[in-house]
Amino acid sequence: MAISTEKLTSILQSFVTSTTDIQGAAVVTPDGLPLAATLPGGMDEERVSAMSAAMLSLGERIGSELARGGIDRIFVEGDKGYGILTSCGEDAVFLVLADKAAKQGLLMLEIKRTLVDLKAVLM
């Protein structure tokens, strides 16, 4: 069945607008192509997708080679905010960009909920 990008986009949009301190989100293929994205202006969807894929693949490699097991998420903490990558089933990677002010616990919860919605569309 064809994946509905409109549905994915609308999930991302409601996620970004309804959650405070979230600046952007994207769903990309594991080989780095955009499926859907709601990103801050000036950020290139293609690049964001490629970077997300590269990062997740390296993270997963660390998981297996350095015996950390399966990877739940990759967390990049900068002094201006967070970048969080979560595997979204076999065929997608979920990227979230959040402000430094974001509460981490809340953020993780929101991501978890959104993942369920995204996976339902991706199935």
Binding site: P40, G41, G42, M43, D44, R47, K80
Partner: peptide, 11 residues
């Protein structure tokens, strides 16, 4: 070229 993000997005 590797696109640098515009400053408006990141302040």
């Amino acid at each position: 070229i590797m696109a640098a993000p515009t400053t408006s997005a990141f302040d």
